[in-house]
Amino acid sequence: MATRLGIIGAGLMGGGIALDAARHGLDVQVFDARPDAADALRARAQGIYARWVKSGRMSAEAADAALARIRPAPALADLADRDLIIEAVFEDLAVKREVLTALAPVLGPQTLIATNTSALKVGDLAAGFPFANRLLGLHYFSPAEIAPLVEVVRSPSTSDATIDGALVFLEETRRTALHCADRPGFAINRFFCPYYNEATRLVEDGVAGPADVDAVARERFGIAAGPFTVMNLIRPAVAAHAMANLAGLGPYYAPSAALRAQAASGADWDAAAQVPGADPDLIEARLLASLALPALELDAERVAEPADVDQGAILALKFAHGPFALMQRAGPEAVAQAVRAACARHDHPLPPPLEASRPASAVA
């Protein structure tokens, strides 16, 4: 029997998950406390399904059937019979735990709960709840209705049965699962956020303009859209918030002053701005370090398998090569030099592979 899905939060991510699940034949109920949320989600689903019908992605009959499968839940209690509930509310620990607290009294005894958090630790969300063994992370990427990758995050409390049930749901909706340990940023944002953060540091330092950085990302790394183009798509404030969630990982992960200022301004980056004489080799080295340093750390922490991380970068971010493949292409000497320089610049500890290879004289 198909998974009966409940979703809390009908915004960008929750709504996208809902209309995709309905397209794949699942019965979906969505709870959102905002009075206009149900109508907004229905209008959004109608618009997206209409585009898919026009492009031949689905038939008109299939679109009508999918739309009928999305139903509003007037109260959280209406989600009690769901097999899986995905919370997709604002990315804030206190907000998400408040939702889980309200859900606890009405939660079915077999219902699985997933958080769509992009960076918060699942274990911190689950702490103290009697259903902690039934809670996991299912991190979708934007736009959730079409992005093929979902990070599957196991906290120390998550049971095998919970993971198995979530994988059944992902198979039903034809998503690729990337298994991750419960570390800040999981696998993809662990390197993607520092990558665009370093791009803003290049601008802050006067080394390059946004257009210079984007050009190097495209031409030397084969990345479809440079970091400033992407930040303008997801909004600088969202980018800054995601980066701030990683700050506890060390000095290198602190959001740049330029990123914080751009987020506060509410404006887009001037993606056409350049700096005369910008050095593409220097830009490349610093961007390489921004991908390699987090990749080396997440590998040492056994967050995810390197091959899976690289596949995830291709599926979720449209990279031509993931961070581990880029390190192979650059070579160990270039990677070590770039990462050592980044760590020295920010007083950040060397990742274990480089720390282990440090000459004895450098340790003394």
Results as ranks from 00 to 15, higher is better:
residue 5 L to M: 00
residue 6 G to C: 07
residue 8 I to S: 13
residue 10 A to I: 01
residue 11 G to Q: 00
residue 11 G to C: 03
residue 12 L to F: 05
residue 12 L to I: 12
residue 12 L to W: 03
residue 15 G to F: 14
residue 20 D to W: 00
residue 22 A to F: 08
residue 23 R to C: 12
residue 23 R to K: 13
residue 29 Q to V: 05
residue 34 R to I: 11
residue 38 A to C: 07
residue 39 D to L: 15
residue 40 A to W: 06
residue 43 A to K: 14
residue 45 A to V: 01
residue 46 Q to F: 13
residue 48 I to Y: 14
residue 50 A to H: 13
residue 55 S to A: 15
residue 58 M to I: 14
residue 58 M to R: 13
residue 60 A to D: 08
residue 61 E to S: 15
residue 64 D to L: 15
residue 65 A to K: 07
residue 66 A to D: 12
residue 68 A to K: 04
residue 72 P to V: 07
residue 74 P to C: 03
residue 74 P to M: 09
residue 76 L to R: 13
residue 78 D to M: 12
residue 79 L to R: 05
residue 82 R to P: 00
residue 84 L to R: 00
residue 87 E to C: 07
residue 90 F to E: 02
residue 94 A to Q: 11
residue 94 A to H: 07
residue 95 V to K: 03
residue 97 R to L: 03
residue 97 R to V: 04
residue 98 E to M: 09
residue 99 V to I: 15
residue 100 L to H: 06
residue 102 A to V: 14
residue 106 V to P: 05
residue 106 V to S: 12
residue 107 L to T: 08
residue 107 L to I: 01
residue 107 L to M: 03
residue 108 G to C: 09
residue 111 T to P: 04
residue 113 I to P: 06
residue 117 T to V: 04
residue 118 S to E: 05
residue 118 S to G: 15
residue 118 S to C: 09
residue 120 L to W: 04
residue 120 L to H: 07
residue 123 G to R: 08
residue 123 G to A: 11
residue 130 P to F: 01
residue 131 F to V: 03
residue 135 L to T: 02
residue 136 L to W: 08
residue 137 G to Q: 05
residue 140 Y to G: 02
residue 141 F to D: 11
residue 142 S to R: 01
residue 143 P to T: 07
residue 146 I to W: 05
residue 155 S to I: 00
residue 157 S to K: 09
residue 162 T to Q: 13
residue 162 T to N: 12
residue 166 A to Y: 10
residue 167 L to I: 03
residue 169 F to Q: 03
residue 172 E to H: 06
residue 177 A to K: 07
residue 181 A to R: 04
residue 181 A to F: 02
residue 186 F to P: 04
residue 189 N to H: 04
residue 190 R to V: 00
residue 193 C to K: 03
residue 194 P to N: 08
residue 195 Y to M: 02
residue 195 Y to N: 02
residue 196 Y to H: 10
residue 196 Y to C: 00
residue 200 T to I: 08
residue 202 L to T: 05
residue 205 D to C: 11
residue 206 G to F: 08
residue 207 V to M: 11
residue 207 V to K: 15
residue 209 G to K: 00
residue 215 A to G: 03
residue 222 G to E: 03
residue 223 I to Q: 02
residue 223 I to Y: 01
residue 224 A to S: 08
residue 225 A to F: 06
residue 226 G to K: 12
residue 231 M to H: 09
residue 232 N to G: 03
residue 233 L to A: 15
residue 233 L to R: 09
residue 236 P to N: 11
residue 239 A to C: 04
residue 244 A to T: 11
residue 249 L to D: 05
residue 257 A to F: 09
residue 258 A to M: 13
residue 259 L to N: 06
residue 261 A to H: 11
residue 262 Q to H: 12
residue 276 P to T: 05
residue 278 A to I: 01
residue 279 D to C: 14
residue 284 E to K: 00
residue 286 R to D: 15
residue 287 L to F: 10
residue 290 S to T: 05
residue 296 L to P: 12
residue 297 E to H: 11
residue 298 L to T: 07
residue 301 E to T: 01
residue 303 V to F: 14
residue 304 A to M: 03
residue 305 E to N: 10
residue 309 V to C: 15
residue 316 A to P: 09
residue 317 L to M: 10
residue 321 H to T: 09
residue 323 P to W: 15
residue 330 A to E: 09
residue 331 G to I: 14
residue 332 P to F: 06
residue 334 A to M: 08
residue 334 A to T: 15
residue 336 A to P: 14
residue 342 A to G: 13
residue 346 H to P: 01
residue 348 H to Q: 15
residue 358 R to Y: 01
residue 359 P to I: 02
residue 361 S to T: 11
